[in-house]
Design a protein around this nucleic acid. Structure first.
Lengths: 110, 110
DNA sequence: CCTCCATCCCTGCAACTTCTAGGTATCATC
DNA sequence: GATGATACCTAGAAGTTGCAGGGATGGAGG
């Protein structure tokens, strides 16, 4: 079993999904696998969190969805970043930087 | 007004409180002010989040509470880290490091 | 004196996201 | 024919944060 499951703080999943889609359109299952592989399984993306998150983000017009056929002949729903999604990603990355900076200051305080 | 209010992800407040108390026992209001000053007001600690958090942490035996008189002659509830609290802090600091590492990998991915 | 502000504590409710635990279906492999 | 990986989905529980209120004291300034 992996070292630690490490649960995601609120809002983090959106950031991870947005950033993953910025590297190229993809479908839900693949997004989860990509994040897990990228983090060497430090993060586990639960499907019960993933799909609701994708639906929320689609409703907010951060991502667009389109059904396609995968190479294996299975139907997959491909998500892609919208212009608003790209703006949201920039804002989230900025917030994340400010947050880690601020928390870092507290952790290093005298 | 400050640049950005920057809301706290779930679990972050506990970490901040535990770390602040590790620098010395203190009371709720002072804990909030310390965190805000340490982060140059990048983080704002809302009292509606702070006091419930302190009560939760006391119930979990991470911190102990004691009423005292402040220099101004006002009653203050002084919180201090317990042994369990110190262990919890270590675990939280470790988790935070793993989380920021993992998210960082995703943010820097190709 | 009286008002205002900072200090200091508290609670209820709304809002939100994550996670558990299910369900469905296809395809390849053994 | 069973199993495991792929691929999607939802319902409900659980948990924390934030908003909006309420209260009380003490000092400073008009």
């Amino acid at each position: 079993m992996p070292p630690t499951p490490l649960s995601l703080p609120q809002g983090t999943l959106d950031l991870l999904i947005l950033r993953t889609l910025a590297a190229g359109a993809s479908h839900g299952y693949a997004i989860a696998r990509t994040i897990e592989e990228t983090t060497d399984d430090a993060l586990r993306i639960e499907e019960g969190s993933l799909y609701p998150a994708l639906h929320r983000m689609q409703q907010r017009r951060w991502i667009s969805a389109e059904w396609r056929q995968s190479e294996l002949g299975k139907k997959v729903k491909i998500y892609a970043l919208t212009t608003r999604g790209r703006a949201e990603l920039r804002a989230r990355v900025d917030d994340w930087g400010q947050l880690t900076d601020a928390v870092g200051k507290v952790l290093r305080m005298g």
